[in-house]
Computed example of a mutant assay.
Amino acid sequence: MTFQELKPKVTAITSNNSLTRDEKLLIICQLLNSSIEYYNWVGFYFANHDTKTLHLGPYVGAETDHTVIPFGKGICGQVAVSNDNFVVPDVAAQDNYIACSFTVKSEIVVPLFANGQNIGQIDIDSHVIDPFTEADERFLEFVNEEVAKLY
């Protein structure tokens, strides 16, 4: 399914008033995971600015031990500090990478802003080296704009 075809589906999920926020996030994770072949782990992390940590929210994919990540640590932690998208074409070449699984070859993390503050991020792992393009970044920014309406 193309990104253009997915956009109205994402909007329909975030607009569904019969679902809780976490249910909406989980369904978005499921949609992306099942619709985009190289999205092998899809999840949201949310920031606690008091403790400077990220906390795992709804996700789809292999179980992870990384339920709390300090700001600055790993790709997700770096995005919590930089507020910028971070695309890692090959995790093996990245110094500050927290290994989740030997099957993960690349990662993309896009920050989630609500009311001008970085409140978290969407994190996607792939079992393929270098699959993410600018189109992925723009699409995930759209997803996060829709998710931000829930906050």
Rank of each mutant, 00 (worst) to 15 (best):
K149Y: 01
L140V: 13
V87S: 13
L19H: 04
H55R: 14
G43L: 05
K52F: 09
V91T: 05
D65E: 13
T67L: 05
C76I: 06
Q30G: 08
S18R: 05
V60A: 06
R21P: 01
M1F: 02
V60E: 03
I13H: 05
P8G: 03
P89W: 00
I75C: 06
V68A: 12
K105I: 08
Y39D: 00
N96A: 01
G43F: 04
T14F: 02
Q4T: 13
R138G: 11
R138L: 15
N17F: 14
E63R: 06
S106K: 00
C100R: 09
T14V: 11
S15A: 07
T2S: 15
N48P: 00
F46Y: 00
N115D: 14
V147C: 13
F102L: 12
K52Q: 15
G57L: 10
R138N: 15
G57K: 13
A99K: 12
G57R: 09
F46T: 00
L150R: 12
A47M: 06
P58F: 08
I124M: 06
D95Q: 14
E141I: 12
N115L: 07
I13F: 07
V109A: 04
A135D: 15
P58Q: 14
N83C: 07
N17E: 15
S15E: 14
F102P: 10
Y59F: 08
D123F: 12
L6G: 09
E146H: 13
T11D: 13
I124V: 09
L56N: 00
F71T: 05
E5M: 08
T14D: 12
N96D: 01
K9Q: 12
I98Y: 01
A93V: 10
K73H: 02
L150G: 04
D84Q: 14
H49S: 13
F113T: 05
E37H: 10
E63H: 04
K24A: 08
L6S: 08
N83A: 07
L150Q: 08
Y151M: 08
A80P: 00
E145C: 13
I13V: 00
I122D: 03
D95Y: 09
Q121M: 13
N144I: 05
Q121I: 04
E145G: 14
I75D: 05
Y38Q: 11
V88K: 06
V79K: 02
Y39C: 01
E37G: 10
L31W: 01
P8A: 07
D123S: 11
A47N: 07
Y39T: 02
G57C: 11
T103N: 09
P89I: 07
A93P: 07
G61W: 03
E107W: 04
P8S: 07
Q30D: 09
F142S: 14
S15Q: 12
S34G: 10
S35P: 02
C100M: 01
A92S: 10
E23L: 08
S82T: 14
S34F: 06
I28P: 03
S106W: 07
N40L: 03
H49A: 10
V42N: 03
S101T: 04
I98E: 03
A114P: 00
D130P: 04
A148I: 14
